[in-house]
């Protein structure tokens, strides 16, 4: 453990806020893609709620990232004027929606992670990150509850839903290891108590997922070829397309306000 400072530096805050903000922004985009395509009208409203909550978190986090960066960039400049190699989100959140089982599995993995992380970040030593986490953890709990309910129902529903759920788990499992990778910004933040160390949330995450899957007649895939690189800006091909869509209008009018 290094003893460089008792509090997280501005650069340190920037790096954490950017990574977590990008997670929220990209996942919000994916969830918004469900608009007018949800399996039932009630679920249409629920998915939009998740997307809206995450977009709100993204805006707070990117604003904080901009303020601590010291280059005068606001949430929009960070969202619209970075290329995919500059995005710091997890590979998990940029994976395409697939079917409803894939979307709910992705949500389960991410919300379990976010809830554990935010709960500890809210009690952490960096007050601005703690404030965002304190609000976000309530939302994450709700997202988690929603995805848990659906994973149970799809896992224990029909033969088809069970098959689709198991396939979704196998599809997304390789991206779960990255959630707990000790990236340098996370280690620096953990050293001063702004974030928990990755190991502190990895165990509860596994325990929680394993228990739910077991109760839902689903099996943990046996897979060890982990995919990672998102936190370093090495993404899947999917992110480039997502950003092309998200950014094209804003970039087509460089000096405009909206």
């Amino acid at each position: 453990m290094t003893v460089e400072a008792a509090e997280l530096s501005a650069v340190g805050i920037h790096e954490v806020a950017l990574a977590l903000g990008d997670d929220c922004l990209v996942l919000s985009h994916r969830l918004a893609e469900w608009t007018a395509h949800a399996p039932e009208l009630e679920e249409e409203v629920a998915l939009a709620n998740l997307a809206l909550d995450l977009l709100g978190q993204a805006r707070s986090l990117l604003t904080l990232a901009g303020e601590t960066e010291g280059r005068g960039r606001d949430e929009d400049q960070l969202a619209y004027w970075r290329d995919d190699r500059e995005f710091r989100n997890l590979l998990l959140v940029e994976q395409p929606n697939g079917d409803f089982a894939v979307t709910m599995t992705r949500q389960l993995f991410f919300s379990t992670y976010q809830e554990l992380l935010y709960a500890r970040m809210a009690a952490g030593t960096e007050p601005r990150l703690a404030a965002i986490a304190a609000k976000g953890v309530m939302e994450a709990r709700y997202h988690l509850e929603h995805s848990r309910l659906w994973v149970q129902r799809l896992g224990g529903g029909t033969e088809e839903s069970h098959r689709r759920m198991q396939r979704a788990l196998e599809l997304l499992w390789p991206y779960t290891h990255e959630l707990f990778e000790a990236s340098p910004p996370w280690v620096r933040a953990a050293d001063v108590g702004a974030l928990p160390p990755p190991t502190a949330i990895e165990e509860p995450w596994r325990h929680s997922i394993e228990a739910l899957l077991a109760a839902s007649q689903l099996e943990i895939p046996d897979f060890r070829a982990w995919q990672s690189g998102g936190r370093q800006g090495r993404h899947s091909e999917h992110l480039g397309h997502l950003l092309a869509e998200m950014q094209h209008l804003h970039r087509s009018h460089p000096n405009a306000t909206w």
């Binding site: 039932e40 009208l41 009630e42 409203v45 629920a46 709620n49 509850e145 929603h146 309910l149 129902r153």
Partner: peptide, 18 residues
């Protein structure tokens, strides 16, 4: 509409307390 009580509660929260 909801398949069961738990989802009915979640849907009600989403729909009637936005």
């Amino acid at each position: 509409h909801a398949p069961d009580p738990e989802l009915a509660l979640q849907n009600a929260r989403d729909l009637y307390t936005r």
